[in-house]
Amino acid sequence: MYSLDNYLSFHYINRSNWLRAAVLGANDGIISVSSLAAGVVASGTSRENLIIATVASLIAGALSMSAGEYVSVSSQKDTENADIQREMKELRDMPEFELKHLAKIYEDRGLKPETALMVAKELMEVDPLAAHIRDEL
């Protein structure tokens, strides 16, 4: 049953990252290899040649899919890391402004101005960078 400790285990959003990659891969594997095989069949070739072409497209497709996912997710990660670096610099250079900015974010989410400022102050005492990454980016 639900308790505060196991609450997240009733939700599936933590699977969304690898599930997205898996659905993309399997969908592509079925459609591209079927279509390629059908194209090769239409040329009137033997089953032996057809098998060679299909196995080749399986290997090429799987490697290309892995490489493609690696570079595309890496570019997403690079962007995230660059944003974190920018955030660290902002926190160093203008902490007062960043505090107000964080408070404004909580205000926009529905907290009263006093409460928002209090929340922002307390969170920035714990871990300023984490608070900003979580709520600003």
Binding site: L24, G25, A26, G29, L58, G61, M65, E69, K77, E80
Partner: peptide
């Protein structure tokens, strides 16, 4: 974002699908 996990998952899924 986990590039290696995404690469491995989608490559394996492609192989199963194909």
């Amino acid at each position: 974002a986990k590039p290696l996990q995404a690469a491995f998952t989608s490559g394996a899924a492609f192989t199963v699908g194909a």
